[in-house]
Computed example of a mutant assay.
Amino acid sequence: MPPREVTVSPRNAMPEGYAFLKKGIQYKTLHSRRLTHAAGKTVYVVESNKKILGIRVPKDILSRVHTQANETRAARKLTTEKRDTATIRQAAAELDSQFSKIPEQDRELVLKHGFKKHSGRVGRTNLIPLARKVLYAVVAHIRHRHTNYDTLLDGGMSRDAAKKTIKKKLQETLRRWGNEQGRR
Rank of each mutant, 00 (worst) to 15 (best):
T67P: 00
E104F: 03
P103Y: 00
T85R: 15
T67H: 06
A91Q: 08
I61T: 06
L95R: 02
A75S: 12
S63L: 14
V65H: 03
V57N: 05
T72V: 07
A93H: 06
D60A: 08
Q68T: 05
R83P: 00
S97F: 12
V65P: 07
L62K: 12
T72K: 11
E71Y: 09
I102W: 00
R73K: 14
A93E: 11
D96E: 12
R76K: 13
D84Q: 15
K82A: 13
V57C: 10
A91E: 06
D84G: 04
A92P: 01
H66N: 15
R73T: 04
A86I: 02
L62F: 13
T72S: 13
A75K: 15
R73Q: 10
E81I: 08
R107T: 01
T67K: 12
S100D: 06
T80C: 03
R73C: 01
A74Q: 14
E94P: 01
R89P: 00
I61L: 06
Q105K: 13
I102V: 14
V57T: 11
R107H: 06
Q105H: 09
T79M: 09
E71I: 09
K82E: 12
S100Q: 07
R83N: 03
S63H: 13
Q90P: 01
V65I: 15
S97G: 05
E71P: 02
Q105C: 00
T79P: 00
E81T: 10
K77M: 02
S63K: 15
D106C: 06
T85K: 15
Q105D: 12
R89G: 02
P103V: 02
E104V: 11
R64F: 11
I61K: 09
K101I: 01
I88S: 00
H66L: 13
F99P: 00
L78Y: 03
K59E: 14
K59Y: 07
T80A: 11
S63G: 09
L62A: 15
A74K: 15
A69W: 06
D84F: 10
H66F: 14
Q98T: 06
E104L: 11
D106R: 09
Q68D: 10
I88T: 13
Q90D: 14
R76S: 08
D106W: 02
T79S: 11
A92C: 05
D96T: 10
T72Y: 04
A92I: 03
T79G: 07
T67L: 10
L78F: 02
F99W: 02
T72A: 08
T80M: 08
Q98L: 15
A93L: 12
R107N: 01
P58Q: 12
T80D: 07
T85Q: 15
A92T: 10
P58E: 04
K82Q: 14
R64H: 11
T87D: 02
S97Y: 09
A93I: 07
E81L: 14
I88P: 00
N70E: 09
D84P: 05
L62I: 12
D106G: 02
A91G: 07
A75I: 13
S63M: 12
R107F: 01
R89A: 15
H66R: 14
Q68V: 05
T79Y: 07
L62G: 08
A75E: 14
R76A: 04
I61P: 04
K77A: 04
T67D: 05
S100P: 01
R89N: 11
D60Y: 08
E104Y: 02
I61A: 04
T67N: 05
R73H: 11
K82W: 07
R76I: 03
S97V: 03
E104A: 14
Q90K: 15
